[in-house]
C-alpha cells in the first residue's frame, strides 16, 4: 500500500519535468558518473587548449641536453622533471593528451558510425542482407587487428590520420556484431510492429525506435573502445607507425621512458597514470550515461 502511494507521488511530482531535465537529474544523482564526467571534461579541456597552455616549439620539442633526466621537483621550471632529451614532461603530457584523445575518439567514432550502419542494417533487414554483411565482417575479423593496422599504416604512410583509420578498421567488425545483436533484441518488440502499423518507414523505425534502444550498448562500447583505441595508438606509435617523433604521445612516452625506469620511474609513471585515469573516467562516464538514458533503471 505504502509502495503504491509512493509511486503515485513520484508520478505526480514529475508532471512538469521535461525528458531532458529528467535524464540530467538522474545522471547527476550518480556520484561515479559525475566524477567520470568531470575528469573527462578536464582532459578534453586540456587537450583542446594544449596549444595555448604550452608552446610547441620551445617547450614540447625543444631539446635541452644539460637538463636531461631531471627528477620532478628538482627544477621549478620543470615540475614533473625532464625526459632523456631534456624536454619538459609536463608540457609533453599536456600536448600528448591532444594526440591520444583525438586519435582514440576519432578512431572509435569512425568505427561506431560504420558499425552502427552495418549492424543495424544486418539486424533489421535480416535474411540475405544480414548474411552478406556479416560474412564480410567475419572476413575482416579474420585478419588479426594489429597486423591489419600495421598493413594500413605501412601502405598509406605513417601519420596520425592513417593511425585513426587503422584502429577504426580493426574494430568495425566487433562493433557491427554488437550493434546487430542489440538490434535483434529490440526488433522483436511489439512496438516496432506497432510503429510499422502506424505508418513509419524502415528508416524512421531504425532511427526513432531501434537505435535509441541500443544506445546503452553503443555508449558502453564507446567508453570501452576509446580506452582500447588510446592503447592501440600507443603501441603503434611505439613501433614508429603512428605519432611521429618528436610529437609526444602517452604510449610513446611510456615506451621511451622504459629504458630509464630504474633511475627515473616517473618518466613511465606519469604517462601511465594519464592513460589509466582517462580510461577509468571514460568508463565511469559511459556507465553513468547508459543508466541515465534508460528510464527503466531509475531508482
Amino acid at each position: 500500500m505504502s509502495k503504491k502511494n509512493k509511486k503515485a507521488e513520484t508520478t505526480t511530482g514529475r508532471k512538469n519535468i521535461s525528458k531532458r531535465q529528467d535524464i540530467t537529474r538522474r545522471f547527476l544523482r550518480n556520484r561515479n558518473s559525475v566524477i567520470g564526467l568531470v575528469v573527462t571534461a578536464i582532459f578534453v579541456f586540456v587537450a583542446l587548449f594544449a596549444p595555448i597552455l604550452v608552446d610547441y616549439d620551445t617547450q614540447v620539442i625543444q631539446q635541452d641536453i644539460p637538463n636531461r633526466l631531471l627528477h620532478p621537483g628538482e627544477d621549478p621550471d620543470h615540475p614533473l622533471g625532464t625526459d632523456e632529451l631534456g624536454r619538459d614532461v609536463m608540457a609533453r603530457l599536456i600536448y600528448a593528451a591532444k594526440m591520444s584523445l583525438a586519435i582514440g575518439a576519432m578512431a572509435v567514432i569512425i568505427a561506431i558510425a560504420i558499425g552502427v550502419v552495418i549492424g543495424a542494417s544486418a539486424g533489421y533487414f535480416g535474411g540475405r542482407v544480414d548474411t552478406i554483411l556479416m560474412r564480410i565482417m567475419e572476413v575482416l575479423d579474420g585478419v588479426p587487428s594489429f597486423l591489419m593496422a600495421l598493413t594500413i599504416c605501412a601502405s598509406l604512410g605513417a601519420s596520425v590520420y592513417t593511425l585513426m583509420i587503422a584502429i577504426a578498421v580493426g574494430s568495425i567488425a566487433a562493433q557491427s556484431r554488437i550493434v546487430r545483436s542489440a538490434v535483434l533484441t529490440v526488433k522483436n518488440n511489439e512496438y516496432v510492429e506497432a510503429a510499422k502499423a502506424m505508418g513509419a518507414s524502415d528508416m524512421q523505425i531504425i532511427f526513432y525506435h531501434i537505435i535509441p534502444n541500443c544506445v546503452g550498448t553503443i555508449i558502453v562500447q564507446f567508453s570501452v573502445k576509446i580506452a582500447g583505441g588510446i592503447l592501440h595508438a600507443s603501441s603503434l606509435s611505439f613501433l614508429g607507425l603512428g605519432v611521429q617523433p618528436p610529437d609526444p604521445e602517452w604510449g610513446a612516452m611510456l615506451s621511451g621512458g622504459r629504458a630509464y625506469m630504474l633511475d627515473n620511474p616517473t618518466l613511465t609513471l606519469f604517462p601511465g597514470l594519464c592513460i589509466m585515469v582517462v580510461i577509468l573516467a571514460f568508463n565511469m562516464l559511459g556507465d553513468g550515461l547508459r543508466d541515465s538514458l534508460d528510464p527503466r533503471l531509475k531508482g
Binding site: E190, Y191, M198, L293, R296
Partner: peptide
C-alpha cells in the same frame, strides 16, 4: 493513415524510452 491497430500487450507495444506524449504523437510525426 486510414487503418490503424490496437495491440494486445500494452506493455510490449509501447517503446519504454518514450513519454506518453511522444507515444501518442508518433503517428502524427510520421
Amino acid at each position: 493513415q486510414e487503418m490503424q491497430m490496437i495491440f494486445q500487450d500494452p506493455f510490449s507495444s509501447l517503446n519504454p524510452r518514450k513519454t506518453v506524449e511522444e507515444l501518442i504523437g508518433e503517428p502524427l510525426k510520421w
